[in-house]
């Protein structure tokens, strides 16, 4: 069972950013959507995906304290956009202004299963992160870091929205999880 953790402040945002993840994941494995403020026990889940949010929704940045469970997390987690930002912030990364709207060229920097070649992806964000030393940078665009992996834990982050044009990134995470970086 996979948990899709909803980071949205609005119901319409949840529709837009969680339901597409649900439809991709549920084709491979059973999954549920839960809001980050109500999710408590992660024991039933084999993996967690942290959702994105609309461009104007940055409320999740006021709740970074809710994500310190990531520090001791022993299952694979994929953070998407807002999800990657909170993942980075939970480990002391810096949030930086970085606006990208639309198709963006992504270039891999380190070999990994999630992003293995140059490709074009849909970006929709006002902020990026300058990752702390806890992360390897897997890929970037001209403007910012686009994919990260925690150096010890199975925590992955992508700033682009793979659900739009790069479903295979989510499918690979769901199928392979902890072996993605090998």
């Amino acid at each position: 069972m996979i948990l899709i953790m909803d980071l949205n402040q609005t119901s319409l945002g949840s529709c837009e950013f969680c339901l597409p993840l649900y439809s991709i994941v549920s084709e491979i494995e059973e999954c549920v959507i839960q809001h980050h403020t109500t999710a408590q026990s992660f024991s039933p889940y084999s993996k967690i995906i942290l959702s994105g949010t609309p461009l104007m929704d940055t409320e999740y940045l006021d709740h970074v304290d809710n994500f310190h469970w990531l520090e001791t997390c022993n299952i694979p987690v994929l953070g998407i956009c807002a999800g990657m930002q909170v993942m980075g912030l939970a480990f002391g990364s810096d949030l930086i202004p970085c606006l990208e709207i639309g198709m963006t060229q992504i270039t891999p920097l380190k070999e990994n299963a999630l992003v293995s070649r140059s490709f074009s992806a849909y970006s929709l964000h006002r902020y990026g992160i300058c990752p702390s030393s806890d992360f390897d940078v897997l890929a970037r665009s001209d403007l910012c870091v686009q994919a990260i992996k925690h150096i010890h834990l199975d925590l992955y982050g992508v700033l682009f929205h793979p659900e739009a044009r790069n479903k295979e990134v989510i499918q690979t995470f769901v199928r392979e999880g902890s072996t993605c970086s090998r």
């Binding site: 945002g13 529709c15 597409p20 439809s23 609309p54 461009l55 104007m56 659900e163």
Partner: peptide, 9 residues
């Protein structure tokens, strides 16, 4: 705000 409730349906 911009909402697309049918996005990728």
């Amino acid at each position: 705000w911009c909402f697309n409730p049918l996005w990728l349906k």
